[in-house]
Each structure stands twice: as C-alpha cells, then as structure tokens.
C-alpha cells in the first residue's frame, strides 16, 4: 500500500475552519446558491490550470471550466457523498477536456499544415542554450508547458494531476477511473520522459535533494 498522505491543494484550503467541499455541495443540494458560489470560487482556478495544462489553450480551457460548473449546477443531485467532491468535479472536467481533445484531433486532419507551422514557433530550446532559470518566468513556464503538451494524453493527464495539482495516486485513480498500479506506472513513465526533455532546466534547479 502506498504511504502517500499528500492531499490535494484544494483540501489543504478546506482545513482552515472553512466548510468542506462536501458540506458546501450538501447545502447547495438543499437550494443554497451561496454554497454553489463558494464552490465555484474555490475550484475555478485549479480547474482552469488543470485543463489549460492539458489542452494548452486558455480561452478554450475557460469555456470548459464554465461547462464543468454548469454541469455541476444542473446535475447537483447526482453527487453522492461516497466520493470526494474534488474527485467528482475533476472527473467531469477531465471528461470534457478529453472530449475537446478528440474534437481537435478530428479538426487536425483537415488542418495539418497550419498545425505544423504553429508548432515550429515554440520548439523546445537546445539543451546548451541559455534558458530562464527561475521557474516562475514566462519562458520557463512555456518550455515546461510545451514539454507537457508533447506527452501522450494519458501521461499528460496523470502528471498534471499528480505534480501540478497535487492529487494522491488514489484520488487520480478515482478521477480517471484507472487502476492504482496503472496510475503509478503512468506517472513514473511521464516523469521519466519529462526529465529527459527538461534536463537542461532541471539540472540548474538547486533546491534538490534525494
């Protein structure tokens, strides 16, 4: 069994004397609109970042976040407290993002030339070039983002949930409906690929101890 106790970023927020997500959705199910607003405020940014890292388009990502919250509003009674609210809402968002990705692939067939032209603009820099060393700079973020985008969707999804969003393996397994062992294997393979692509960036990162 895994010893991972790391909770997602969202649940860390809940522990500060605020109502939990499950309490809020329960209140919303009883007709409390303010509880719904609180849930939206709590989740809109994490969801936006999750979808953005997955799709790579901020405008489309925001539309999907809107759709996610709309579905939560419409299907509030389908939520049962057997699962965490975060798992439920991330499953909705994840399914919508995957649908969007499939739609894009279909569109891609008709516009291959445009796509390749766009890709050329943001190629990964050479390992020996001079990249930004600070993680929070725009260029570095773009490079990391590009490296993540190059991963196959099934690896991309788990690495975002695990390392960007901070979910535990068990939570990821519930969100994407895949066995725990498969999740662990995918995370490991995704990390191995990413570290290959981002080696130039990582090696300059000082705050590392194993």
């Amino acid at each position: 069994m895994t010893k991972i106790t790391s909770e997602s970023k969202l649940n860390r927020i809940d522990s500060q004397n605020q109502p939990t997500d499950e309490e809020l959705i329960a209140r919303f199910q009883l007709g409390d609109g303010y509880a719904y607003d609180q849930l939206v405020r709590r989740y809109k940014e994490p969801l936006l970042n999750f979808i953005y890292r997955f799709l790579g388009d901020i405008v489309e990502s925001e539309d999907i976040v809107q759709e996610t919250f709309y579905r939560v509003y419409k299907n509030k009674h389908y939520y049962k407290e057997v699962a965490k609210f975060s798992t439920w809402i991330y499953t909705i968002a994840s399914n919508l993002a995957k649908t969007e990705l499939r739609r894009r692939r279909r569109r891609k067939i008709f516009s291959i030339h445009k796509e390749t032209a766009a890709e050329k603009e943001i190629e990964l820099p050479d390992v020996k070039s001079d990249p930004e060393k600070e993680v929070n700079t725009v260029l570095t973020e773009k490079v990391i983002h590009k490296a993540i985008s190059n991963l196959p969707p099934k690896f991309r999804q788990v690495i975002i949930l695990r390392d960007v969003q901070g979910f535990s393996y068990e939570e990821i397994s519930s969100i994407i409906k895949v066995p725990l062992g498969t999740v662990k294997s995918r995370v490991n393979r995704a990390r191995l690929r990413l570290q290959e692509d981002l080696r130039f960036l990582i090696e300059d990162f000082e705050d590392v101890s194993i």
Partner: peptide, 22 residues
C-alpha cells in the same frame, strides 16, 4: 535527482486566473 527536481518545479508552476467576467 532530476525527477525529484521535476516534481518540485511542476508544483511551483504559476497559476493562471480566470477572466474577471467568469
């Protein structure tokens, strides 16, 4: 060592914000 660093880097990625009229 690289993977350990990678996890930390990914965890520190800046968060994008939703538009004001969200």
């Amino acid at each position: 060592k690289n993977i350990s660093a990678l996890s930390k880097i990914l965890n520190k990625l800046p968060m994008h914000k939703c538009s004001d009229d969200f």
